[in-house]
């Protein structure tokens, strides 16, 4: 393997971008070497890419289970740790326990969803990364990691699909 370079091109339009990515695949550039950045969420696979499996659902479920157990401990466990009779009722009561367990389950689910998605995205990450500021102004950026020998071909492909600002990508402060 020779030295790799990062090449970035900007596109106006999603169909051009998808076509360009297809051409890149034909060049045997593996999928993980291509990164697409957009200012608008395009539907999954609209740009000819596969989506990856996520750990999110597992994180959320684990969070929910933790919350449930915490709720059970507070609603059922703590009254038995320090029993005090109130209102002529048993120490452990059903309906209030249901409310407590429900709310704690929900709280933990919400927090774990939030932490889970940040973790999945690798956020926060403020180090310099390949990026172009025109992405949020409506351009689609395609970042390709390739061998130096491939640069010219990729340049041609991008230009053929109305790409512009094609240059070796810079890391910038985010």
């Amino acid at each position: 393997m020779g030295k790799t370079v990062m090449l970035m091109g900007l596109f106006h339009e999603s169909t051009d971008t998808a076509d360009a990515i297809d051409r890149l695949y034909e060049m045997k550039i593996p999928e993980e070497d291509i990164l697409v950045m957009t200012g608008v969420p395009y539907p999954e696979q609209a740009l000819g890419r596969h989506s990856e499996w996520q750990r999110m659902p597992v994180i959320v479920l684990v969070g929910a289970l933790t919350g449930f157990l915490l709720g059970v401990f507070l609603a059922v466990g703590t009254p038995t740790l320090y029993p005090l009779t109130v209102g002529g009722r048993p120490i452990i009561t059903g309906p209030p326990a249901a409310v407590i367990i429900f709310v704690f389950t929900m709280m933990a689910t919400i927090v774990s969803t939030f932490l889970g998605v940040l973790w999945e995205m690798g956020f926060p990450s403020f180090e310099n990364k390949y990026y172009h500021r025109l992405v949020t102004s409506g351009h689609l950026a395609v970042l390709v990691e390739c061998l130096e020998s491939q640069v010219d071909d990729i340049h041609t492909i991008m230009e053929a699909h109305n790409g512009h600002h094609i240059q070796s990508a810079e890391r910038m402060a985010l």
Binding site: P41, F114, F123
Partner: peptide
């Protein structure tokens, strides 16, 4: 938080927002 708008980021954000809406 270092958002770049990569496909994976959008995808995960959508997923999280959907879960949030339901919870």
């Amino acid at each position: 938080l270092g958002w770049r708008g990569t496909e994976a980021e959008w995808h995960k954000l959508h997923r999280a927002l959907n879960i949030f809406s339901i919870i």
